[in-house]
């Protein structure tokens, strides 16, 4: 694998549109559930072990070469909120454009043809990792990290949180994110043996509920 390719893919400046999404932080800030670094860390920890684990597992499975159409269906079933399904597909479409520009591949072309409105973002990310010569662990790392870096970055803007505090939150969560990556990669290998149902389905009730409330706001800073 190329470690530099991983840095390119995981770079916040990679033009995949992630900066427009808060990962639920905007709704949680408005509801008064994220008020500073401490509650941001708990929010991110909850997201990491649920949505983060699921996304990392889907991405790892796609990077392993499991059927992306079946994985996309598994992502739908694990995302009851239509607002979150739409956000994930929009992000998937944007990532697809950047990925095809960076690492052209027949597999990416086929997936783009199958889902013109966008496949779920973790599935696209897994195939992007393959196209970039990266493996399941790399793909899972991208998703697990993104599941916490998104809300942390958004909270800096939403609460004028000190960026040093936000970065400390991410550093403190790093060992747990590594653990989630290991779980995700193990689950992806199990899914290759036993079928896609072996992938985790961990859910965070407030992320689902808040995403729907947020989607109905007239004015918002972030798309989700």
């Amino acid at each position: 694998m190329s470690r530099t390719a991983l840095l390119v893919l995981a770079d916040g400046r990679f033009p995949a549109g992630g900066h427009a999404h808060s990962g639920g932080a905007e709704a949680a800030v408005k509801a008064g559930r994220i008020t500073g670094a401490g509650s941001l860390e708990e929010f991110c920890r909850g997201r990491l072990h649920t949505a983060g684990l699921v996304a990392a597992s889907l991405a790892a499975a796609a990077a392993l070469g499991l059927d992306p159409v079946e994985l996309d269906r598994a992502a739908d079933a694990r995302t009851p909120s239509p607002a979150l399904r739409n956000a994930s597909r929009r992000l998937g479409r944007q990532l697809m454009r950047a990925a095809r520009a960076a690492w052209p591949s027949g597999e990416l072309d086929a997936l783009a043809g199958e889902f013109p409105k966008g496949a779920h973002q973790p599935v696209v990310l897994g195939l992007t990792a393959r196209a970039a010569g990266l493996g399941p662990e790399d793909a899972a790392h991208c998703c697990a990290y993104e599941s916490v870096s998104g809300p942390a970055g958004a909270t800096v803007r939403l609460l004028s949180l000190d960026p040093f505090d936000a970065t400390r939150v991410l550093a403190r969560l790093a060992p747990e994110a590594d653990l989630v990556v290991r779980q995700a990669v193990d689950a992806a290998h199990r899914a290759a043996e036993e079928g896609i149902d072996a992938l985790p389905a961990a859910s965070a009730p407030l992320l689902e509920i808040d995403a729907q409330a947020h989607a109905a706001w007239a004015v918002r800073l972030f798309a989700s």
Partner: peptide
């Protein structure tokens, strides 16, 4: 396909602002 996991020993953040 949904799983909730809560209580002592559950993965971190289950009772937090996302859970």
């Amino acid at each position: 396909d949904q799983e909730v996991s809560c209580g002592p020993g559950a993965p971190g953040g289950w009772d937090g602002p996302a859970g």
